[in-house]
Amino acid sequence: MEELILELKKEIIEVLNLEEITPEDIDTDAPLFGEGLGLDSIDALELMMLMQKNYGIKVDNSEKGKEIFKSIRVMAEFISNNRTK
């Protein structure tokens, strides 16, 4: 799981252009939206594309998205249980 968490942090930094942030800066349990990384709605759509492209998981429900994107740890657990890639 720790390996997947690190991989996910690196992917999020790259795909969301979080230029001045390193994986170590991201709190695994902190909220991704609102506080924490302070991501916005476009970032949420970009995360949905990341899930589909890299892990074969289609997130097509915004309520489900809210749950999955709660934190890096929640995301990683969901990916671990549902990935097809």
Binding site: V15, L16, N17, I42, M49, Q52, K53
Partner: peptide, 9 residues
């Protein structure tokens, strides 16, 4: 086929 929302905007 992965249309990027961040590029689209």
């Amino acid at each position: 086929y992965f249309p990027s929302p961040a590029v689209f905007v």
